[in-house]
C-alpha cells in the first residue's frame, strides 16, 4: 500500500537546508496497522506529509497504492494531536467537510446531502458521539473533539488513515478509551493505518508493525512485528509479552536519543 524507497527530504530552513529525513525506507501492506515511533523532531510528521503528497521528496520515491505520489493523494484521511475542529461549524458540519472537497462526493454534495448526513451520524455513533452532531466543538471535551476528528478523517471512506499523535493531548483514561474506538473501527472497516506516536504502549496495543526512527535526519532503524493475538483488549497491557515489547522499544529509543 505504502512504499518509501530511500527517501531524503530537506526543508529550506532559515539558515540553510534542514535534513529532516535521509535514506528512509518503509513498507506498509494493505490493511496493515503500522505505528511509527521516534524521538521528537526526527521527521515523523514529515513522513506523514510525504505519504499524503503534501511535500515532494528531495530524493527517492514514495509510492502509494502502486503509484508514485506526485500531488495530494486524496485517498487518505488525516487526524492530528490538535482536533482542529472549525469552531463556526457544528460537529456534524465539521465531519462532513471532506465531502465538500473530495470527488466524487463534492459534485453530488447538495443532491445527496441527506444520505451523507445519515452516514456522518452513523460514524458519530460508532465513536460514541450519537446525538452530539448539532453541538459546536467548543461545547465538547478534548476527547470528544478528537472522536469527531476521527470521524472527519473517515467520512470519505479513505483506504488510508494517517494519524499524527492523535491522542497525545488526552488524559490517560480518555486515551485508552480512544484506542479501543480506533481498534474497533479499524477491525470493522479494514483500512490501512499509519499511526505516529510517542506512546510505546499505544503502538504496541494497536499496531501490527512498529517502526522505530532515528534522531534527525530520521530513518527507520528497526521494524518489529507485534505478535500479540487479536482481538486485543486493554487486559493485554499486563501480558508479559506486551511489557517485554515495550521494554525493548524503550531501550531502542533511548539508544537513538543518545546517538
Amino acid at each position: 500500500m505504502i512504499e518509501l524507497d530511500d527517501v531524503t527530504l530537506a526543508y529550506r530552513g532559515r539558515t540553510g537546508p534542514v535534513l529532516a529525513l535521509q535514506g528512509t525506507s518503509l513498507k506498509v501492506g494493505r490493511g496493515e496497522f503500522a505505528a511509527v515511533v521516534g524521538p521528537s523532531g526526527c521527521g515523523k510528521s514529515t513522513l506523514m506529509k510525504l505519504v499524503t503528497g503534501l511535500v515532494k521528496p528531495t530524493q527517492g520515491r514514495v509510492l502509494v497504492d502502486g503509484h508514485e505520489v506526485a500531488g495530494p493523494v486524496k485517498i487518505a484521511g488525516m487526524a492530528f494531536q490538535n482536533a482542529n475542529m472549525l469552531p463556526w461549524r457544528t460537529v456534524l458540519e465539521n465531519v462532513l467537510l471532506p465531502l465538500e472537497i473530495v470527488e466524487p462526493y463534492r459534485s453530488k454534495f447538495r443532491a445527496e446531502k441527506k444520505q451523507y448526513v445519515a452516514r456522518a451520524e452513523k460514524l458519530l455513533d460508532t465513536v460514541g458521539l450519537s446525538g452530539f452532531g448539532s453541538r459546536f466543538p467548543w461545547e465538547m471535551s478534548g476527547g470528544m473533539q478528537q472522536r469527531a476528528s476521527l470521524c472527519r478523517s473517515l467520512i470519505h471512506d479513505p483506504s488510508l488513515l494517517m494519524l499524527d499523535e492523535p491522542f497525545a493531548a488526552l488524559d490517560a483514561f480518555t486515551r485508552e478509551e480512544l484506542w479501543c474506538v480506533l481498534r474497533d473501527v479499524w477491525e470493522r472497516i479494514g483500512f490501512t493505518v499509519v499511526l505516529v506516536t510517542h506512546d510505546l504502549r499505544e503502538a504496541a496495543f494497536l499496531a501490527d508493525t512498529i517502526h522505530v526512527m532515528s534522531a534527525r535526519p530520521g530513518r527507520i532503524i528497526e521494524t518489529r512485528k507485534v505478535d500479540l493475538p487479536r482481538p486485543r483488549d486493554l487486559e493485554i497491557c499486563y501480558d508479559p509479552r506486551f511489557s517485554d515489547l515495550v521494554q525493548i522499544l524503550r531501550h531502542k529509543i533511548a539508544e537513538v536519543r543518545q546517538a
Binding site: 499524503t52 503534501l54 486524496k74 487518505a76 472549525l86 467537510l97 472537497i101 478523517s153
Partner: peptide, 23 residues
C-alpha cells in the same frame, strides 16, 4: 490559518480557493 487544518484539506486535493472559502 492553522497549517494542520490546511493540510487536512490539501491532502484531499482542495485548491487554494477551497481553503479560503471553507476556512
Amino acid at each position: 490559518i492553522e497549517p494542520e487544518m490546511e493540510d487536512v484539506l490539501r491532502a484531499l486535493g482542495a485548491s487554494k480557493l477551497d481553503v479560503m472559502l471553507k476556512i
